[in-house]
Nucleic acid binder design. Sequence first.
DNA 1: TCAATATAGTTACTCTAGGTAACAATTATC
DNA 2: GATAATTGTTACCTAGAGTAACTATATTGA
Lengths: 143, 143
Amino acid sequence: MEGFFQNYLRLYRSLITSLNELMSNYHLSYSLWQVMYYIKNYGPSTLVDISNYYNVEKPTITRRVHRLEELQIVVQIPGKDRREKIIQLTELGEQIYKECRLEIINLEKNVMEGISKEDQHITYLTLPKIQHNIMKREGNKIE
Amino acid sequence: MEGFFQNYLRLYRSLITSLNELMSNYHLSYSLWQVMYYIKNYGPSTLVDISNYYNVEKPTITRRVHRLEELQIVVQIPGKDRREKIIQLTELGEQIYKECRLEIINLEKNVMEGISKEDQHITYLTLPKIQHNIMKREGNKIE
DNA sequence: TCAATATAGTTACTCTAGGTAACAATTATC
DNA sequence: GATAATTGTTACCTAGAGTAACTATATTGA
């Protein structure tokens, strides 16, 4: 699919700008939201889980988590290891998650105007497949 | 489409990392490539054209263009105005474009493995529609 | 026709986000 | 029990983008 990356990346700046604007009301940015989203949807997790999921280095997630702690949105509790820390949402975090989620869903609806449900769904499913293929490629390189 | 942004943005870091790695052989990054891509496919253009297309501020494009000039990939020639500068590819720029393009197409193929042509095509067409909707929204805000 | 406004592009400064390398503490492995 | 791997952190650096203020031209319209 020639020019796919172009179409994908052209969209990035517009989207991230809209989202950050939306989230700034909660003193959040989309990068912080990603952490909240992950632990809400995959359950309390470690820094390593999150960093693998988004394909981002560990120190990056350390920083995000620290910011979320300051905002009292997450806490870290000891894991089964004495190394591990489990990151989870606080009461306040859950609340903010819900409010924000609604606004994001609303934005998603607006942005999908005039696009058929099927096409939306296909796109929704295709992106993770691409992600999967890239991760596989990266894995191979290490060999 | 709930969770769409999540799927879209999760992919970002993986993709940009792969692309930048590919382009580093040419002393390029994807942000520089975007400028080359634009003037190759839409013809010699001004800074403002490019900055509108990618929804990025003017100084950002100024910087990208200056870097491309240093690499002798583009030149700026006077436009019809005495304000305007038209950015165009040099011979060298054309050459590098072609080489790079092939590698990118190749990466695109790899990354689309196991995804049907139709689904690829639908995704390809859907992303610009979303872009269009966002731009429309932003336009409305200014009112 | 000329004053006010708009446009193209630049410069200087700042901010966000991420990466790398090196490390401590702990756990797994052989 | 020594070696290797894993979790998380700190300190430092880089890429990339935004904002505000500016210059130099062009356009508008009173």
